[in-house]
């Protein structure tokens, strides 16, 4: 297959960026999107040009490192699919494809399509855990948890931390990311005790880092590669306001 690409190029965080045109030819339909970019990069390198920087690591949809905005959508056209699991068979022959970084105020572009997502780690650091030291834990089966509850907690815990929810949101809100962790831990007996403090601290951190407010558009849920539901945001809001004076 052949494609025309319009790819965001930006030298560094300070530089202005722009879309640059490229063409790729003879790409097999079973090639993944990132492997298509690998091939383009090999040509650029051999021509002495600077290859396109983009993020990736596991290439199996679980590390959350890859993050391309393709034709105006976080992770491209398929639902519940991260960029690395997208294949060229999902595009039309000779299609023009726009490739941009995930954009949000708190995610500055480092170079080309690579962004800085440290703020997501900071949100977790502010309370996204159970405060249990190594060695303290009681026998695992001492607390029974019904399997439905575990499944619900799992739905939230499956977040891969890619930031698509933030990029998809017109407000640049990290509400889905934050709520997923709050909800995961809230649903389990082990996480309940610290719950109030956790909600307060994580929401405060999220706001402090410059993420926008949630206005319930639901775009995050649509673009989330793990299909995490916005109902977790409702839970976060409810618990947050329960606590506030």
């Amino acid at each position: 297959m052949n494609f025309k690409l319009k790819i965001w190029r930006q030298d560094n965080a300070q530089a202005a960026g722009k879309l640059v045109d490229y063409e790729v030819e003879n790409i097999s339909a079973d090639t993944s999107f990132l492997e298509m970019l690998d091939q383009l990069n090999e040509t650029l390198i051999l021509r002495g040009e600077n290859p396109i920087s983009f993020d990736y690591d596991c290439r199996e949809g679980i590390c959350g490192q890859c993050c391309l905005f393709i034709n105006g959508r976080a992770h491209g056209p398929l639902a519940h699919t991260s960029t690395c699991q997208l294949h060229m068979r999902s595009f039309r022959e000779s299609e023009t494809i726009y490739v941009e970084p995930f954009r949000a105020g708190p995610f500055p572009v480092k170079k080309d399509l690579k962004i800085d997502r440290k703020p997501l780690d900071e949100i977790i650091a502010s309370g996204g855990y159970v405060s249990v030291n190594t060695g303290q834990a009681p026998e695992a089966n001492a607390t029974l948890i019904d399997s439905d509850t575990v499944e619900q907690a799992f739905d939230a815990a499956s977040c891969i931390g890619c930031g698509a929810c933030v990029a998809a949101c017109k407000n640049g809100s990290a509400a889905l990311f934050t709520a997923a962790k709050i909800s995961h831990l809230f649903r389990l007996p082990q996480g309940k005790i610290e719950h109030k403090q956790r909600v307060k601290n994580m929401v405060k951190t999220m706001d402090k880092l410059g993420f926008g407010a949630c206005s319930n558009t639901g775009a995050c849920e649509v673009e989330c590669p793990q299909g995490i539901s916005i109902s977790h945001i409702a839970l976060m809001n409810r618990e947050y306001f329960k606590k506030s004076p």
Partner: peptide, 22 residues
Amino acid sequence: SHLIDQAVAQGVPFAREYSGYL
């Protein structure tokens, strides 16, 4: 054995039987 205890305490959602046991 103790690792499973530790992970459960951290909130790792291991699969459970309908009865609630791991």
